[in-house]
């Protein structure tokens, strides 16, 4: 199984999530899963500006060439993607949300009706199982955790699973394998 972990921790001084994800990565590798851990803050990604170039001008390809194209390739090649972020102001980090917004080339502009609401047609025939790993240490976080879950469950592609970094690394690693 191929696992891609995107580390959306924006703060270098906050090392706990970084080392947690390293442990998770090692644990998955020890179970013979090809694991790639990418530190998002080492890139200078542009915000998605909603220009629709990736839909209407160069289908599937973003107008910005800032390294995101390699992440999109890794994303599609994976069986499981873990989007990891500390909870900041009650939500995933702007850093991770930026990457989330830049997944627009995975969709196609055409609309379909699904579950009595509109959705976009997928561009690719299959996608990895996407999961969230939220790091919740601050006191306002329990409510945020539920709200983030609610937003992602409402989204068209959704997420398969949401984890908390309060869980043991081994527990998550076992669940990834059996997803």
């Amino acid at each position: 199984m191929k696992v891609l972990i995107l580390n959306g921790n924006p703060k270098e001084e906050y090392g706990e999530l970084d080392s947690y994800l390293k442990d998770l990565s090692h644990s998955l590798e020890s179970k013979n899963h090809e694991t790639k851990l990418i530190m998002l803050r080492s890139f200078q990604f542009h915000d998605c500006i909603g220009c629709y170039t990736c839909w209407l001008k160069t289908p599937g390809i973003c107008c910005f060439k800032d390294g995101m194209e390699d992440i999109l390739k890794e994303y599609l090649a994976a069986d499981v993607v873990i989007l990891a972020s500390p909870i900041i102001m009650g939500y995933i980090s702007a850093l991770l949300k930026r990457v989330n917004d830049r997944l627009l080339p995975f969709g196609h502009p055409f609309l379909v009706l699904r579950e009595n609401r509109m959705a976009h047609v997928p561009r690719y025939s299959h996608y990895p199982k996407t999961t969230l790993l939220l790091d919740s240490n601050e006191k306002i976080d329990e409510e945020s955790f539920k709200l983030i879950e609610m937003v992602y469950k409402n989204s068209a592609r959704g997420v398969t699973k949401i984890w908390s970094s309060k869980q043991e690394v081994e527990e998550i690693s076992n669940e990834v394998v059996n997803i």
């Binding site: 915000d47 995933i92 980090s93 702007a94 917004d101």
Partner: peptide, 23 residues
């Protein structure tokens, strides 16, 4: 703002993060 992947765009989240000292 416009809805981006079922939430606020990353830019608005950046703005919210600037407001952290005002919690």
């Amino acid at each position: 703002f416009p809805l981006y992947s079922y939430a606020m765009p990353a830019g608005i989240k950046t703005f919210f993060e600037q407001l952290e000292p005002l919690l």
